[in-house]
């Protein structure tokens, strides 16, 4: 496969994952705004920060008005990570690698772009927001379904999945990082409504609030939420799940190509490192320090993949 094609697949799926995650973040933000009206600006600021857009947003706007943040994250062409921007990028990448995609996957990505172009042609009013976010997630699900249902399980599939999981791990880690102070056991007032809302927001950002309840029932503590997001191998958006998937896809590539690179070693070291941790030792190290380290390692892994598989000339 061309190195460029591998890169195109990887970025196509990083972009699609980002679109979906941004929609989830907005949904979580919207929910706090509905339930806790006195603290709106802080809520939206943290949404923008988690989406990695607070800096560029502040250059354009005063304060963190909900309508501005929503508009910026959903459809502003100045924001390279807005849903509209990343869906367009994903589609451009799909055009670039079209010969590697099945017709179904291409059609789903193209449909996604055409739908978003219409859906986000105008600013979204708040009453329409839940519907719009729903459509964004549905479109992502359609692409994912086409990928799983029709693509050969070969190197093409592996590069697509690597993009998904590198992006997802980064995204979950950033959610934890932005809210790390609410996840520290020392700040935990067991049963206080303040923390319950904060934690629920975090869980909603990774669509895991119901899953958490199934698994941990009513025992919602900072420690249990943090452990769930970092170390629970059943949660498809946890750090360990994303990392193990990345590692598995890299091992497939290694087996298919008969060649081992530094990225495989780096990934398996990361997985081993995480498997040997428990939540107490993470808190001991410092949650913020741990997460910062994870984000750095995950980015380094992404760059190794880019180099080892010659994405760029």
């Amino acid at each position: 496969m061309l190195g460029k094609t591998a890169g195109g697949l990887y970025w196509m799926f990083r972009n699609l994952e980002r679109a979906e995650n941004t929609a989830r973040l907005i949904e979580a933000g919207f929910r706090i705004a509905l339930t806790r009206s006195q603290d709106q600006a802080t809520g939206w600021k943290s949404v923008a920060t988690t989406a990695g857009a607070a800096g560029s947003f502040s250059q354009k706007y005063q304060g963190f008005e909900s309508a501005d943040v929503i508009n910026y994250l959903l459809r502003d062409p100045d924001n390279a990570s807005s849903v509209l921007s990343v869906v367009k990028s994903a589609r451009d990448n799909a055009r670039l690698v079209r010969t590697a995609l099945t017709t179904e996957v291409w059609s789903a990505v193209n449909d996604n772009w055409m739908t978003m172009k219409d859906l986000l042609a105008e600013p979204v009013v708040e009453t329409e927001l839940p519907k719009v976010l729903d459509i964004i997630r549905q479109q992502s699900a359609l692409v994912r379904g086409a990928l799983h249902g029709t693509m050969l399980r070969n190197d093409i599939y592996d590069f697509a999945r690597l993009g998904t999981f590198i992006e997802r791990a980064d995204n979950t880690a950033r959610i934890i990082d932005v809210k790390y102070y609410t996840l520290l056991p020392s700040t935990s007032f067991v049963g206080s409504s303040l923390d319950n809302v904060q934690w629920e927001t975090i869980l909603r950002s990774v669509s895991a609030h119901r899953a958490f309840r199934w698994l941990d029932e009513d025992d919602m503590t900072a420690t249990s939420v943090a452990r769930f997001l970092i170390l629970d191998r059943r949660l498809p958006r946890s750090l360990i799940f994303s990392l193990e998937q990345t590692c598995a896809n890299l091992e497939h590539l290694c087996a298919e190509y008969g060649e081992r690179h530094s990225c495989q070693d780096h990934a398996s070291q990361m997985v081993q490192g995480l498997k040997n941790r428990d939540i107490a030792s993470i808190f001991e190290e410092g949650l913020h320090e741990f997460i910062t380290g994870f984000i750095r390692d995950n980015n380094a892994l992404g760059q190794m993949i880019e180099q080892d598989y010659k994405f760029y000339g």
Binding site: L2, R95, R98, D155, K310, G313
Partner: peptide, 29 residues
Amino acid sequence: SFLADQMGAQLVEGHDLRVVDGFLKMRTT
């Protein structure tokens, strides 16, 4: 892209290609 796909050929751009040892080569994974 259509023709490359239908022929089962690679679709390349200039920056995927390089002359190596007197042959035209493409950068693959």
